[in-house]
Design a protein around this nucleic acid. Sequence first.
DNA 1: CAGACGACTTAGTACTTGGGGC
DNA 2: GCCCCAAGTACTAAGTCGTCTG
Length: 691
Amino acid sequence: MSNKKNTKKASDSEDEDFEEEEDGSEGSEEEDSAENSVKEEEDEDDNDENDIKEEDNADTKIEVKDENNDEEEEFKPSINGNKRKNDTSVEKAAGLVNAKQVKTSGGDAIKKPVQKQQDSDDEDDENSDIKWKYLEHHGVLFPDYWQKHNVRPRYDGKPFDLNLYQEEMATYWSQTLGTDWEHKPKYRENFSKQFLDTFGKDKSKLEFDKFDFTPIKTHLDEQREIRKNRSKEEKNQEKQKKEKLADFYAGAILDGFREKVGQFMIEPPTLFKGRGEHPKMGLMKGRIQPEAVVINIAKDAPVPKCSVPGHGWSEIVHKQDVTWLASYKDDSVKKQHKYIFLSAESKLKAENDKKKYEKARRLKNLIGQIRENYERKLRSSDPIDRQLGTATYLIDKLALRVGNEKSEEEADTVGCCSLRVEHIQVLDNSQIGFDFLGKDSMRYQNTVKVTEIVWKNMQAFTKNKKPQDDLFDRIDASSLNEYLKSQMEGLTAKVFRTYNASHTLQQELDKANQEGLDKMDLKDKLNFYDEANRNVAILCNHQKTVGKNFDVMVGKMEQRINIYKDYEKELHTHLNKCKKNGVNPYEKEVILEEKDDGKHKMFVKKFPGTKEKIQEAIEKIKKKIDEEQNKKQSKEKNKEIALGTSKTNYNDPRISVVWCKKWEVPVEKVFPKTLIAKFVWAMDTDLEWSF
DNA sequence: CAGACGACTTAGTACTTGGGGC
DNA sequence: GCCCCAAGTACTAAGTCGTCTG
């Protein structure tokens, strides 16, 4: 396997960087080949340094034996599927055994036993750090190199030449013109500095403000327009090409099963867009070269081909104790690791997911005892214990995150342990006010009534401190988790969020009986579900920003409702007239509203000629009013609440599955496709089950 | 033992899509 | 058939938490 080490750092020194790319030839040449890479991969396999021997090119179907997996679609990755058995004896898993042995050991379908396999997995504890025995995949996809469009910005009113890299940067900048980013001082500052730095010694002569990027912005808009107006065939072609690519890279084999890969495209360069007041926003995210990418596969799996000609992987590793297929470092904006994992619907992820909820259920069974314990700690004479007890109380009652330390290089956000005095207010009547920025700089604003002792503790923790001082100065995330571990094996702060969320959902949905759900129609049942979901989202503070035209949309809805209502009234008067005069002699149509272009009739009023028909029309419009009002209400209720996050990450899917079965609601109504796929393991939960 | 590192989950937003209303 | 919007998905940032290291 290749191991070329001519790596250059992504983008530490811009001068070097663009000089290297400046000669252009590299760029365009590679781009072409990158485009073709898929075809190449499949047809020819002989011109690459990662020359892989593909012993068996037949696209062997892999037999799926595990009954838990019978829903498994075979997506059709063209991996050289080796048939292999999925049930390998325990000793084979012992780690050092290489996959070759696994592969060649035993026939195919001798052992069936799903049950057995599960048992042996459980006993497998001493080997629990082994995540797979065999792993094979196609590596990762690289974004195209920059292709010059030669649209020049103006400088001091005159067209200004840029080299390849400068043009790339300038274009990323131009993409954000007209958005909020443009006006964030930090974004502008970071970008402009880095941009000017690319001019080396000339940079002192340049002022960023004298640049005018509107020509590039215009060009981008035009391009978008062109893209939008492509013919149907063109669009289709492109779609198919994309799908083909996806098929190729999205397929992996893990322990004899075809699995789908998650995000397999290396993150393309762009300007970093951090959340909140991130000090690094606007910096250039560097281009990742294959030389930075580590590939993780089984020892006897074919090495995936690197699709960038003339380049090779950094390293091929066989780490069985991790689940990632590929990883790379990207230090261009901040030190970080990126990974390519299997998708959420893979067995590996699903198992973890299930474990997470099982752990939360264990907490449920112990919560009484655990609460007693931290209540006691609240009154301890040891100040550390009082802080541990108080923090645990907040995590439990308010579903706060634990709050690890953060560096200066990130947005200033906090969680429980990192709360500062300035974030809380000790109020009258045993109340505490919270106001801080949590994960993703989402604001947590809440006033809560707490127990007497918690209130006293909180007050004590603020004593003699400056606003910027830590509220919990004697503990941190790891000491808190250590304490939690002493209460229950594997217990950490985040388990409380999972537990509280799922518990809340279960409780809310259990109210269905009192609410008389059986008499409701599907829409109302779903409203009921949403309401439960919403309570969880509120608990976890899952927010979304209100769309720019939220008010406009609501306004439109109101307008529509009013029009409908007016019409209803008119129908009533019409009906009365009809009653008086016997049969109405005429039927008229009035176009109530037209759009500016005169093309679109928004709403047509009709005044039918018979009493029956009028009555019908009244019923119809009443229903419409009702529907519209419901829509408006839920839109307003969900104004800044995101339901999706708790659905995907916090709510034990079995709760919803059982509820759906019980009330005859199709699961597809509460879970979109992707979540159904993610939660296959929960789909056949039986009615008796509860969280 | 603190801080860095590594792996994995959780998160909101930007973009795409598809289904209902005309 | 077209248009529009909401729902769904893709994307990647930002957390958590265990472990390694000096």
